[in-house]
């Protein structure tokens, strides 16, 4: 059974408390489109709860209405007393408000889902925050193994169940992959009792967004996956495959110039830079 995580207390012991901020968003059920706790964000909260010394603060930036409250209470139901709400009108760039708040609080670890289940869903938020705060970012975590002396050891999820162990100096921002452990059940009692504490923050209008036209996604025909594999192992690999880039190379122990050269070349090849 999960320990009672209702009231994380600052301990007088030698182990310092780890200040964690879990960014949570309003999700959308893939079948019915109903609001819910977003799957990846909830996995992020679960990761935070699994850290023994963490004192976790739930933060949501966005609109606040009856529907979104219902969804956000799903996170409170995982055993939290309150959730900090940075209320933003529709069409705001929440990264600005979040960045200011994080600068203000100075947490050591920020955990977020890889991308939101609705809205832009670009997965850019963590990158924008990392750029603004100047913190390292690790994408696609499956687990946080250890946090000690300001360094977190994390497992990054790679395709086909592979993992890469990384060490990252805190403060850092991490995003969570669907390979992370599933979130615990959200219980009705704590969800109902929990409080959404609204902080007044300035909203920054998302200029780019307002110039876009939005329309519902068209269902596109899916290319059938033709499995040519002869053996069961190949079929399993094909079934378990994630999208993966064909090329790519890992550069280590190179000079900054060589590194920059390689990145410049890649961006040219991909057509990002012309």
């Amino acid at each position: 059974m999960p320990p009672d995580i209702q009231a994380p207390k600052r301990r007088a012991s030698t182990t310092p408390v780890l200040d964690v901020v879990a960014l949570v968003s309003v999700g959308r059920h893939p079948v019915t489109g109903r609001g819910r706790r977003a799957d990846l964000d909830a996995r992020g909260v679960e990761l935070a709860l699994s850290l023994p010394e963490a004192q976790t603060r739930l933060v949501h930036a966005g609109r606040y209405d009856a529907d979104s409250e219902q969804a956000l209470r799903g996170y409170l139901g995982m055993g939290f007393k309150d959730l900090t709400l940075l209320e933003q009108p529709a069409g705001s760039d929440v990264s600005v408000a979040l960045g200011e708040a994080l600068e203000d609080w100075g947490p050591q670890l920020v955990i977020a889902g890889e991308r939101a289940e609705q809205g832009e869903g670009s997965g850019m938020l963590a990158y924008l925050l990392a750029e603004r705060l100047g913190w390292p970012l690790v994408q696609g975590l499956a687990a946080i193994e250890e946090v000690s002396q300001g360094v977190a050891t994390v497992l990054q999820a790679l395709p086909r169940g592979q993992r890469r162990r990384l060490k990252v100096r805190l403060p850092a921002i991490v995003t969570v992959d669907s390979a992370a452990p599933a979130a615990r059940q959200s219980a009705f009692g704590p969800a109902r009792r929990g409080e959404c504490q609204s902080l007044t923050v300035d909203a920054c209008k998302d200029e780019a967004l307002s110039s876009w036209t939005m329309q519902p996604a068209r269902k596109r025909p899916k290319r059938l996956k033709i499995v040519k594999a002869a053996s069961a192992r190949d079929r399993f690999k094909a079934a378990a495959a994630k999208a993966e880039g064909g090329g790519g190379q890992v550069l280590s122990d190179v000079t900054p110039d060589e590194g920059a050269e390689a990145i410049y070349k890649l961006l040219k090849d991909e057509g990002v830079l012309r």
């Binding site: 999960p2 995982m78 219980a187």
Partner: peptide
């Protein structure tokens, strides 16, 4: 157990 613990 379900409504308070979330332990179904």
């Amino acid at each position: 157990m379900t409504l308070e613990h979330g332990n179904t």
